[in-house]
Design a protein around this nucleic acid. Structure first.
Lengths: 269, 269
DNA sequence: CCTGCCTGTTGCGTCTTCCACAACCGATAG
DNA sequence: CTATCGGTTGTGGAAGACGCAACAGGCAGG
């Protein structure tokens, strides 16, 4: 068996070919459940390319630890509450998620758009906190998602204020194109990063996904180092270039407030 | 091999004896990391009762999916950001966590104690949201923890307003003792539940852990059904019986506010 | 310095354990 | 009442996970 040689079950970065097969499959189950909500054993099996019984035993193993729960008595499966215990331990490490929550909620309400906080992690931006605005009806979940530093507003901010080594490393490698508008010219990106440092905010206009625009501002910790970025994102027809003049200052103010909570003494005023 | 027959690696409720060994071990790793923060391969191996190499392969499998990450280049391991993606999908299902956040944060700040929201899940109370108060310095993480319905304030509230079938089922089974003060007499518990319904709040006084007192109030959804409970907990010397008269109304007001956000029309005034 | 001991890491052979198969069961529908 | 769809369970064969032992760095102390 194993007709397809280098076929990963799901979207996993190319890495070593799965140290422990069954564990990897179980984690793939979690990912699938996270994406789709409720999934049945048969569908899981088909998706993983394994037999029904195998999929069943995997979910049972997950259920034992309450990472997965069954909906009816003989129904589909979905993520369980045990995940929350793990998540609480994870966010406990991240001061930003605790301190940023209230501000993000307020920003999301005031601006009516989705607000995210992202941190830098191994060469990409990862969203760790998200609040939906009223206007954002069909917004997706971005938490935990890794995005390229050159194609998101948060990424640009994080990169702009990062060590010179990271800047150089990103600018020296080819910049992957996501949409027709993605910035793939290193010189242009460098210019935008310099702008970000000067202005205190950065934007992306349909550079990651067509129709999606975002603006981001830096969050600093007690030592003044940029540890995160807060961003507002929404459809391009609402977040126009003209609206930036209104949104950017409020975003910067929010970022400054979170920074203050993290012990940063902001010398504005 | 396998000297200890019925020995579970960790604190897992007695269930079927692990359908897929490696998956269960991997999940045990996650639990350990959640409890201790950063753990090395050797320690994990010792804890699981397996060889170092086995533990190593397990964490590597988890790392692949970003559920764990390595601290240094050759360092210990801790929970990774991938957990957050899963958690976001989980809490997305729970309206209470979204709507209750702001209120809990305010309550925690005003009262200075730890505030939790718990829901009913398969015969136990599970905390799904937690906010720390200023006074709560050494407070632990309770999120995701399942607690007995008769030994916690949230549990009593949830039980008091639950279907009669659940009430009967709990009251008919022996009530496990956790501390000298745990209510183990069904008649006494029934009395307290009736009080909870009448007063709109319930308390526990060193019934789950010595020195720990808590008060809880019900949260209702649009249909008026009690779907969760919000609780304040703190050391018994601060949360005295005399303070209840001050704390309870504020807690009830907070619960009502969350209920309103969930679409409940509260007819108080 | 270099020795000893502590980590995390890797190749290998064996035996465990997981997996595919197929049969089973309960519900739903036609 | 039968067909078909879901999830569940017993079993034999073999894939694959496990323990072993040796390796690779880092650190402390002789």
């Amino acid at each position: 068996m194993g007709d397809e040689p280098t076929d990963e079950g799901d979207a996993v970065p190319n890495q070593a070919p799965a140290q422990v097969q069954s564990v990897d499959r179980a984690l793939a189950v979690l990912d699938l459940l996270a994406q789709r909500g409720e999934v049945g054993v048969t569908e899981l099996a088909a998706e993983l390319g394994v037999h029904k019984s195998t999929a069943f035993r995997l979910v049972t193993a997950l259920e034992r630890r309450q990472l997965v729960e069954q909906v009816g008595d003989r129904g589909k499966y979905r993520l369980g509450l045990g995940i929350l215990r793990l998540a609480a331990a994870t966010t406990g490490r991240l001061e930003v998620t605790r301190e940023g929550q209230a501000v993000c909620e307020r920003l999301a309400r005031e601006l009516g758009e989705t607000v995210n906080v992202a941190i830098l992690d191994e060469g990409s931006a990862v969203n760790v906190l998200q609040e939906f605005g009223n206007a954002a009806v069909g917004s997706r979940n971005w938490i935990g998602r890794r995005t390229a530093l050159h194609a998101t507003s948060s990424g640009k901010v994080l990169l702009a204020f990062a060590d010179e080594t990271l800047r150089k490393s990103v600018l020296s490698e080819p910049l992957e194109r996501h949409t027709p508008r993605t910035v793939t010219d290193p010189a242009e990106l460098r210019r935008q990063l310099d702008d970000a440092v000067r202005l205190g905010w950065a934007a992306t206009n349909e550079e990651l996904e067509v129709g999606l625009t975002a603006i981001a501002a830096p969050i600093r910790d007690g030592s003044g180092k940029v540890v995160a970025a807060v961003s507002v994102s929404g459809p391009s027809y609402r977040l126009t270039a003209e609206s930036f003049i209104d949104v950017a200052p409020r975003l910067i103010a929010g970022a400054a407030e979170i920074s203050t909570r993290l012990g940063h003494y902001s010398a504005n005023g």
